[in-house]
């Protein structure tokens, strides 16, 4: 029973995709929407291939990916370290957990103009905004994972003579691991989204920069090709981190 229903779900998904493409094509037929506002699909897909040849996208992709990797590393190291330190004391958890959760709800993108002043138009300001936004889910999940490990596990380990290090390494860490991993996955994704957002606001290079300068030149068809590419990169990142999370969970089981 399971297999056909899963196949059916995929077929419906595919159907929706085809319907969207069909609607797009139909809307751009003669007498439809102005091609300056919505370019027809076929030139967009043709332009997509040009991205890898004449209209080389690689330098800009490299800029964005570098910013992303740096931001993710900074946010992971700072978020996990701070989360670990806070989780060491119940008092610190009571003070900082609500504080950080409150800060998380503030739209951090509002800091971007400030970061532009601090770090300039180059990659610095993008790394800063990506790090800021990715930091919160990582630190909050690290606290949630480590501070709320089932007390029964800790009592049992203590009764068998576990040292502080053994307790952390063999009990706390594996118990918290899935929750921390979820934080890291969310951090990876929001870092990418906010870096792209930052690049479209103000930048010198990167995927977002290309898209916004094409829009300013009214080259909507090429702009759409670039958007398509950015979407694909976002999907690839999502697939990779989701896969890594599943792998990590299995490895710790």
């Amino acid at each position: 029973m399971k297999k056909p229903s899963r196949l059916a779900a995929h077929l419906v998904q595919l159907g929706i995709l085809v319907a969207v493409l069909g609607a797009w094509y139909w809307a751009t037929l003669p007498g439809g929407i102005n091609h300056l506002l919505l370019p027809p699909p076929i030139p967009v897909f043709e332009g997509f291939w040009v991205l890898f040849t004449a209209d080389s996208i690689w330098p800009d992709l490299l800029v964005t990916v570098r910013e992303w990797v740096t931001a993710v590393l900074l946010a992971s190291v700072s978020g996990c370290t701070l989360g670990y330190l806070i989780s060491r004391s119940g008092y610190a958890v009571r003070v900082f957990d609500p504080l950080l959760a409150g800060l998380y709800s503030i739209p951090a993108i509002l800091l971007f103009p400030l970061y532009l002043l601090f770090f300039g138009l180059g990659p610095g300001s993008k790394i800063a905004i990506g790090t800021t936004i990715a930091f919160f889910p990582i630190v909050l999940n690290t606290i949630a994972g480590l501070a709320y490990v089932d007390k029964a596990y800790i009592t049992a380990a203590r009764s068998m003579g576990a040292s502080d290090f053994q307790l952390f390494w063999s009990v706390m860490l594996p118990a918290a691991f899935p929750v921390v991993l979820t934080g890291l996955r969310i951090g990876c994704i929001v870092a990418f989204l906010s870096i792209l957002g930052g690049e479209t606001i103000s930048s010198l290079a990167g995927l977002g920069h290309r898209i916004v300068s094409l829009a300013e030149n009214m080259e909507t068809s090429r702009m759409f090709s670039n958007i398509l590419f950015a979407v694909l990169i976002a999907i690839v990142i999502n697939v990779i981190v989701t896969f890594a999370e599943a792998r990590g969970r299995r490895g710790m089981q």
Partner: peptide, 20 residues
């Protein structure tokens, strides 16, 4: 304090580590 060399516990709740 706990004396693991002399005393072992069996608890009511399941305290087996699910990842092992």
């Amino acid at each position: 304090g706990p004396s693991p060399q002399k005393v072992a516990f069996v608890f009511q709740e399941n305290t087996l580590f699910p990842w092992r």
